[in-house]
């Protein structure tokens, strides 16, 4: 079952603070999406609205064409995990798993047990006594074992060490291939997870900066390196995201695909064209005071 997501002009305000402003996008589903944004860019607010944790101040959130808020049929298909998944601190790991198991229609008990073993989570422990990484592991366990058609992880790796994080990414990918469904991962550790995303959305200051297939996005960024004056001349008419100078050599990052003619010109000008890592592209696009795109 593929559930499409349709966000229409969504705004989330907290009193006078505007966390998300007029965001619209569509996700067709059954893909791994990356939601990227700096801290405070509105990722969590947007995801909270998507998961019916709160009502949008403006606009509409539709899943499968239906308004999501307080829609029992939809809400039981959307699992949103932040750290330990909002479970009460007084619960033991066992209580939390039991509650999740009884609530999620597609819950896979075997898989949950496998994950608990993988993360070495003791069932008897109280959530309040778990380390941050262990809380995250519990959240990840609940999120994955819920097998919810739409599963959202909001920086779910907080406190996890690198091997545990990589185990998480691998698990997401493996389970996604075995049980195709929609995953939305919000993160700023793009270098680590970037390759997992089929599509990327970037939020900046509460607004949607772009939504793009990640392979296309990767191709959008180009660095041009060479003698400063020739580089400057070359980038006229291109969208410059950032530049660096070393002596008389200059390196400029531009956004947008280069025409074949431009590529040829670079060769004759003796300029070197290079790729931009997704992480760098993200940093340039969301730079403070940057004009964005």
């Amino acid at each position: 079952m593929t559930l499409s997501i349709d966000i229409k002009g969504v705004g989330v305000h907290y009193g006078r603070t505007v966390a998300v402003e007029n965001v619209s996008f569509k996700l067709e589903g059954n893909k791994i999406y990356g939601l990227l944004g700096r801290n405070g860019s509105g990722k969590t607010s947007l995801l909270s609205v998507l998961a019916s944790f709160r009502q949008p101040t403006t606009g509409e959130v539709l899943i499968d064409g239906k308004i999501t808020f307080e829609n029992a049929e939809i809400m039981s298909q959307v699992c949103f995990i932040q750290e330990h998944g909002h479970m009460s601190d007084g619960y033991s790991v066992k209580d939390a798993i039991k509650l999740a198991a009884s609530c999620w229609p597609n819950w896979d008990e075997q898989y949950a047990n496998y994950l608990l073993d993988l993360y070495q989570l003791s069932q008897k422990k109280r959530i309040s006594s778990l380390s941050r990484g262990m809380k995250s592991a519990l959240g990840v366990t609940i999120g994955l074992a819920s097998r919810a058609p739409i599963t959202i992880f909001d920086e779910a790796y907080l406190g996890m060490d690198a091997p545990t994080r990589y185990a998480f990414y691998e698990e997401v990918l493996r389970d996604y291939m075995e049980h195709p469904r929609t995953f939305i991962l919000s993160t700023h550790l793009i270098e680590e997870v970037g390759n997992l995303f089929e599509e990327v959305l970037i939020l900046d200051n509460g607004r949607l900066l772009l939504q793009e297939e990640s392979e296309l996005l990767r191709q959008r960024g180009v660095t041009i390196t060479g003698p400063a004056e020739r580089v400057d001349e070359y980038v006229i008419g291109l969208q410059v995201l950032g530049e660096q100078t070393l002596g008389r050599t200059k390196s400029v990052t531009v956004y947008g695909e280069l025409s074949q003619e431009r590529v040829n010109r670079a060769r004759t000008d003796g300029l070197e064209l290079g790729p931009v890592a997704l992480q760098d592209l993200f940093v340039h696009l969301t730079k403070k005071g940057g004009e964005g795109i």
Binding site: K31, E170, L196, F197, E215
Partner: peptide, 17 residues
């Protein structure tokens, strides 16, 4: 594609491409 994706830890759609 799935084996490729799992091995290189990339999205299967990328491998499929």
């Amino acid at each position: 594609t799935n084996q490729y994706a799992a091995f290189y830890r990339i999205n299967p759609a990328t491998a499929a491409k």
